Computed example of a mutant assay.
Amino acid sequence: MTCAFGQALIIPQVADGGGWQTTLVLTNTTTSSTAASVSFYQDTSNGATIPWNISFLEVASTQSITVPAAASIFLHSTGTAAATSVGWASINVGPGVAAYAIFKQRVLGRQDQEGTATAAAAATRILVPFDNTGGGVTAIAVVNPGASSQTISATFRTVEGAVIQGTLDTMPAQGHMAFGMPQQFPRLIGRSGLAEFYSTTGTFSMLALRFNSTNAFTAAPVYPQAGAPIIPLQ
Protein backbone atom coordinates (compact mmCIF):
# COMPACT_ATOMS: atom_id res chain seq x y z
CA MET A 1 0.00 0.00 0.00
CA THR A 2 1.22 3.49 -0.88
CA CYS A 3 1.02 5.83 2.13
CA ALA A 4 2.75 9.01 0.98
CA PHE A 5 0.29 11.85 0.51
CA GLY A 6 1.01 13.44 -2.84
CA GLN A 7 -1.81 15.98 -3.11
CA ALA A 8 -4.18 18.07 -1.02
CA LEU A 9 -7.69 18.36 -2.43
CA ILE A 10 -10.40 20.67 -1.11
CA ILE A 11 -14.16 20.15 -0.82
CA PRO A 12 -15.28 23.77 -0.22
CA GLN A 13 -18.67 22.89 1.29
CA VAL A 14 -19.81 20.14 3.63
CA ALA A 15 -23.31 20.20 5.14
CA ASP A 16 -24.80 17.76 7.63
CA GLY A 17 -28.08 17.77 9.55
CA GLY A 18 -31.25 19.80 9.15
CA GLY A 19 -32.19 17.76 6.09
CA TRP A 20 -28.69 17.81 4.57
CA GLN A 21 -26.29 14.91 4.06
CA THR A 22 -22.86 14.91 2.39
CA THR A 23 -21.31 11.86 0.74
CA LEU A 24 -17.59 11.78 -0.09
CA VAL A 25 -16.48 9.55 -2.96
CA LEU A 26 -12.78 8.64 -3.24
CA THR A 27 -11.58 6.82 -6.37
CA ASN A 28 -8.18 5.19 -6.73
CA THR A 29 -7.21 5.21 -10.41
CA THR A 30 -3.97 3.26 -9.82
CA THR A 31 -3.06 -0.42 -9.46
CA SER A 32 -1.83 -0.04 -5.85
CA SER A 33 -3.89 0.56 -2.73
CA THR A 34 -3.26 3.90 -1.07
CA ALA A 35 -4.10 5.86 2.07
CA ALA A 36 -6.30 8.92 2.40
CA SER A 37 -6.79 11.29 5.31
CA VAL A 38 -9.77 13.65 5.45
CA SER A 39 -9.95 16.59 7.89
CA PHE A 40 -13.06 18.70 8.44
CA TYR A 41 -13.51 22.29 9.60
CA GLN A 42 -16.82 23.63 10.95
CA ASP A 43 -18.05 27.21 10.69
CA THR A 44 -18.12 29.30 13.85
CA SER A 45 -18.52 33.03 13.06
CA ASN A 46 -17.13 35.71 10.74
CA GLY A 47 -15.63 33.11 8.42
CA ALA A 48 -13.65 31.33 11.14
CA THR A 49 -13.71 27.55 11.59
CA ILE A 50 -12.74 24.92 14.15
CA PRO A 51 -11.79 21.24 13.68
CA TRP A 52 -14.93 19.20 13.07
CA ASN A 53 -15.37 15.58 14.09
CA ILE A 54 -18.19 14.78 11.70
CA SER A 55 -19.69 11.27 11.90
CA PHE A 56 -19.87 8.91 8.93
CA LEU A 57 -21.82 5.68 8.54
CA GLU A 58 -18.96 3.60 7.15
CA VAL A 59 -15.93 4.56 9.27
CA ALA A 60 -15.20 5.60 12.84
CA SER A 61 -12.40 7.91 11.71
CA THR A 62 -11.55 9.61 8.42
CA GLN A 63 -7.82 9.52 9.15
CA SER A 64 -5.69 6.86 7.41
CA ILE A 65 -8.47 5.43 5.26
CA THR A 66 -7.37 2.69 2.86
CA VAL A 67 -8.54 3.14 -0.73
CA PRO A 68 -8.07 -0.19 -2.57
CA ALA A 69 -6.48 -0.32 -6.00
CA ALA A 70 -8.85 0.34 -8.91
CA ALA A 71 -11.78 1.01 -6.59
CA SER A 72 -14.06 3.68 -5.16
CA ILE A 73 -15.19 4.11 -1.56
CA PHE A 74 -18.27 6.03 -0.41
CA LEU A 75 -18.49 7.82 2.94
CA HIS A 76 -21.97 9.02 3.96
CA SER A 77 -22.39 11.56 6.74
CA THR A 78 -25.16 10.59 9.14
CA GLY A 79 -27.34 13.61 8.37
CA THR A 80 -29.52 12.98 11.42
CA ALA A 81 -28.99 16.14 13.50
CA ALA A 82 -31.92 18.55 13.72
CA ALA A 83 -29.76 21.59 12.98
CA THR A 84 -27.54 22.04 9.93
CA SER A 85 -23.78 22.25 10.46
CA VAL A 86 -21.61 23.49 7.59
CA GLY A 87 -17.92 23.73 6.85
CA TRP A 88 -15.35 22.27 4.48
CA ALA A 89 -13.00 19.33 4.02
CA SER A 90 -9.32 18.87 3.20
CA ILE A 91 -8.43 15.54 1.61
CA ASN A 92 -4.80 14.38 1.66
CA VAL A 93 -4.33 11.52 -0.77
CA GLY A 94 -1.71 9.83 -2.86
CA PRO A 95 -1.21 10.55 -6.57
CA GLY A 96 -3.89 9.03 -8.75
CA VAL A 97 -6.75 9.45 -6.26
CA ALA A 98 -9.70 11.64 -7.24
CA ALA A 99 -12.59 12.76 -5.03
CA TYR A 100 -15.95 14.44 -5.19
CA ALA A 101 -18.85 15.25 -2.87
CA ILE A 102 -22.57 14.60 -3.22
CA PHE A 103 -24.89 17.01 -1.42
CA LYS A 104 -28.37 15.69 -0.64
CA GLN A 105 -31.22 17.80 0.73
CA ARG A 106 -34.37 16.21 2.10
CA VAL A 107 -37.45 18.40 2.51
CA LEU A 108 -40.74 16.90 3.70
CA GLY A 109 -43.27 16.73 0.89
CA ARG A 110 -40.70 17.30 -1.85
CA GLN A 111 -38.48 15.01 -3.87
CA ASP A 112 -34.91 14.77 -2.55
CA GLN A 113 -32.43 17.08 -4.30
CA GLU A 114 -28.79 16.26 -5.04
CA GLY A 115 -25.78 18.08 -6.46
CA THR A 116 -22.10 17.24 -6.78
CA ALA A 117 -18.77 19.05 -6.54
CA THR A 118 -15.36 17.76 -7.58
CA ALA A 119 -12.49 18.09 -5.11
CA ALA A 120 -9.61 20.16 -6.46
CA ALA A 121 -6.38 21.76 -5.38
CA ALA A 122 -6.56 25.40 -4.31
CA ALA A 123 -5.74 28.10 -6.87
CA THR A 124 -4.90 31.80 -7.00
CA ARG A 125 -7.69 32.61 -9.47
CA ILE A 126 -11.06 30.96 -10.18
CA LEU A 127 -13.65 31.69 -12.87
CA VAL A 128 -17.33 31.10 -12.04
CA PRO A 129 -20.18 31.48 -14.55
CA PHE A 130 -23.24 32.84 -12.72
CA ASP A 131 -26.95 33.14 -13.49
CA ASN A 132 -29.26 35.02 -11.14
CA THR A 133 -32.09 35.47 -13.64
CA GLY A 134 -35.60 34.01 -13.73
CA GLY A 135 -35.81 33.70 -9.96
CA GLY A 136 -32.64 31.62 -9.82
CA VAL A 137 -29.57 32.20 -7.66
CA THR A 138 -25.97 31.06 -8.02
CA ALA A 139 -24.56 30.23 -4.58
CA ILE A 140 -20.87 30.08 -3.76
CA ALA A 141 -18.75 28.43 -1.08
CA VAL A 142 -15.16 29.65 -0.71
CA VAL A 143 -12.33 28.34 1.47
CA ASN A 144 -8.98 29.77 2.50
CA PRO A 145 -7.02 26.58 3.32
CA GLY A 146 -3.83 28.44 4.21
CA ALA A 147 -2.25 29.34 7.53
CA SER A 148 -2.66 33.12 7.04
CA SER A 149 -5.66 35.36 6.43
CA GLN A 150 -6.18 36.75 2.95
CA THR A 151 -8.41 39.05 0.93
CA ILE A 152 -10.09 37.72 -2.21
CA SER A 153 -11.05 40.23 -4.88
CA ALA A 154 -13.80 39.75 -7.44
CA THR A 155 -14.64 41.16 -10.84
CA PHE A 156 -17.89 40.40 -12.67
CA ARG A 157 -18.66 40.78 -16.36
CA THR A 158 -22.36 40.59 -17.14
CA VAL A 159 -23.79 39.33 -20.42
CA GLU A 160 -24.57 42.98 -21.24
CA GLY A 161 -20.86 43.80 -20.96
CA ALA A 162 -20.97 45.70 -17.67
CA VAL A 163 -17.95 45.20 -15.40
CA ILE A 164 -18.57 45.24 -11.64
CA GLN A 165 -15.92 45.05 -8.93
CA GLY A 166 -16.21 43.60 -5.44
CA THR A 167 -14.23 42.19 -2.53
CA LEU A 168 -14.97 39.47 -0.03
CA ASP A 169 -14.49 40.11 3.66
CA THR A 170 -11.00 39.20 4.84
CA MET A 171 -10.93 35.43 5.24
CA PRO A 172 -9.13 34.04 8.28
CA ALA A 173 -6.74 31.11 8.05
CA GLN A 174 -8.70 27.93 7.26
CA GLY A 175 -11.73 30.19 6.85
CA HIS A 176 -14.98 29.38 5.05
CA MET A 177 -17.83 31.44 3.59
CA ALA A 178 -21.02 30.40 1.79
CA PHE A 179 -23.47 32.86 0.23
CA GLY A 180 -25.88 33.59 -2.56
CA MET A 181 -24.16 35.88 -5.04
CA PRO A 182 -27.03 38.44 -5.15
CA GLN A 183 -26.96 38.71 -1.35
CA GLN A 184 -23.19 39.21 -1.23
CA PHE A 185 -23.09 41.43 -4.32
CA PRO A 186 -26.47 43.20 -4.73
CA ARG A 187 -25.55 44.61 -8.15
CA LEU A 188 -25.75 41.04 -9.48
CA ILE A 189 -29.48 40.71 -8.72
CA GLY A 190 -31.25 39.59 -11.89
CA ARG A 191 -28.00 39.36 -13.84
CA SER A 192 -25.88 36.63 -15.39
CA GLY A 193 -22.31 36.53 -16.64
CA LEU A 194 -18.81 35.51 -15.56
CA ALA A 195 -17.26 36.06 -12.13
CA GLU A 196 -13.51 36.13 -11.59
CA PHE A 197 -12.19 35.70 -8.05
CA TYR A 198 -8.48 36.18 -7.37
CA SER A 199 -5.94 36.63 -4.59
CA THR A 200 -2.43 38.05 -4.61
CA THR A 201 -1.53 36.66 -1.18
CA GLY A 202 -2.50 32.99 -1.24
CA THR A 203 -4.62 30.23 -2.74
CA PHE A 204 -8.28 29.42 -2.21
CA SER A 205 -10.94 26.98 -3.35
CA MET A 206 -14.56 27.42 -4.48
CA LEU A 207 -17.66 25.55 -5.54
CA ALA A 208 -20.93 26.78 -7.00
CA LEU A 209 -24.53 25.56 -6.88
CA ARG A 210 -27.44 27.06 -8.80
CA PHE A 211 -30.86 27.16 -7.15
CA ASN A 212 -34.00 27.76 -9.20
CA SER A 213 -37.15 29.53 -8.05
CA THR A 214 -38.44 26.36 -6.33
CA ASN A 215 -35.11 25.90 -4.45
CA ALA A 216 -34.21 22.83 -6.48
CA PHE A 217 -30.47 22.95 -7.15
CA THR A 218 -27.76 21.59 -9.39
CA ALA A 219 -23.98 21.75 -9.48
CA ALA A 220 -22.43 24.64 -11.40
CA PRO A 221 -18.85 24.52 -12.72
CA VAL A 222 -15.92 26.55 -11.45
CA TYR A 223 -12.63 26.84 -13.32
CA PRO A 224 -9.37 27.14 -11.32
CA GLN A 225 -6.79 29.23 -13.17
CA ALA A 226 -3.26 30.59 -12.84
CA GLY A 227 -1.80 33.89 -13.94
CA ALA A 228 -3.19 37.42 -14.02
CA PRO A 229 -6.92 38.27 -14.06
CA ILE A 230 -8.51 38.33 -17.52
CA ILE A 231 -11.60 40.52 -17.02
CA PRO A 232 -10.43 44.07 -17.81
CA LEU A 233 -11.35 46.81 -15.35
CA GLN A 234 -13.29 49.74 -16.75
Rank of each mutant, 00 (worst) to 15 (best):
V14K: 00
I73H: 07
D131I: 09
Q111F: 08
S64E: 13
I65K: 05
N28R: 00
K104A: 15
Q150T: 14
P95W: 13
V137K: 13
D112Y: 08
A141H: 03
F103E: 05
N144S: 11
A117W: 02
V67R: 08
A119K: 02
A117G: 13
A141W: 04
A36I: 04
T133P: 02
P129F: 07
Q111M: 10
I140Q: 03
V137T: 15
G135P: 06
S32M: 01
I73M: 12
V59P: 01
Y41V: 00
A83V: 11
V137Q: 13
S33W: 00
T22M: 09
L57T: 08
G17P: 03
L26N: 03
A101H: 09
A69T: 07
I73Q: 09
G18T: 03
Y100H: 15
S72Y: 07
A15H: 00
V128G: 03
V143F: 07
V107S: 13
D16C: 06
T49S: 08
P95L: 15
I50D: 09
S64A: 14
G146Q: 10
W20Q: 09
A82D: 12
V137W: 06
T62E: 10
G87P: 07
W20D: 08
H76E: 14
A123V: 00
V142M: 15
A147I: 12
A147C: 06
T44V: 13
T133I: 03
S64C: 10
S37G: 05
A69G: 14
S39E: 10
I50V: 15
Q113L: 09
D43H: 13
P129M: 12
S39I: 04
T116A: 13
S149N: 14
V86D: 11
L24D: 04
Q42K: 15
I65E: 05
V97D: 03
G94A: 15
A71D: 14
F74K: 14
S148M: 12
L24A: 06
F103G: 03
G134Q: 10
Q42P: 04
S61E: 09
A81F: 03
A99H: 08
V67T: 10
I11H: 02
G135D: 06
R106C: 09
S72R: 11
I65C: 04
P51M: 04
S77R: 05
A15T: 00
S45K: 14
V86W: 07
P12Q: 02
F103P: 02
W52Y: 01
Q150K: 14
V143W: 06
W20H: 12
V142L: 15
I11E: 03
Q105Y: 11
I91F: 09
H76I: 06
